[in-house]
Structures are given as structure tokens and as C-alpha cells.
Amino acid sequence: LKLETAKNVEPAQPTPGMQALKSARFLNVQMESVTYPGDILSPNPAKNQGKGNACLYDRKFLLQFQEVFKEKPSIDWDQKVKETLGDGGDSAHSGRPSAGAR
């Protein structure tokens, strides 16, 4: 019985994207120039240079990440969301059907 249980609780592994997020260092937005691939806009350098240490990003720049980075923050994220937000089962969103996965 013990052995079977152990077999079933094989821990989930973090994805490569999760690991990259964890190990990546902060870019120095003021000092390092990055060549972004393709037609990716860079954060407005004029905004970021000579402005002390401020990291400013306009909304256009930020939106470019939306379809690029979709990794969950952790392997137990869905469980955490459920515990914190509730499962929404008793919700009353005006008859709107659940839209499912985004």
C-alpha cells in the first residue's frame, strides 16, 4: 500500500519557463541596450534615460508580453487561486456563461 501511494505522489516539475523566470536577472533598463527581435518595440529609451533610476514602461510596450509569457507563477498556482478566490461556484455573474480558458 505504501509503495503505491509513493508512486502516485510524484511531484509535478516546474516548467522551463517557470525556471527561467526564477533564475533570470533584472535587466538594467537604463544602462543596457537590448536588441529586441522582430518588430518588438523597446521600452521608450528617452523615458528611461536620464530619469534617475525610474523604470517606466508605456502600455504598448507592456502589452507585447501578453501572448509571450503565460507561465503560471508556481506549480501549485491553480490550487492557490482556488483557495484564495474561491471556486466562484456561488457566483451570480448575471447569467453570463463561464468563458472557459483564456
Binding site: 478566490l85 457566483s91 483564456r102
Partner: peptide, 19 residues
């Protein structure tokens, strides 16, 4: 970080679906 933000935003209930 910007990347952390999107990981969260893309995996949490949208406002339109909250109770």
C-alpha cells in the same frame, strides 16, 4: 517584474468572471 506580472495576469480569474 513585467514577466512575473503577466504570468499572474494570464492565470487568474478575469474581473468579468468574478462573483
Amino acid at each position: 517584474s513585467v514577466e512575473d506580472f503577466w504570468g499572474i495576469y494570464n492565470n487568474i480569474t478575469p474581473t468579468s468572471q468574478l462573483a
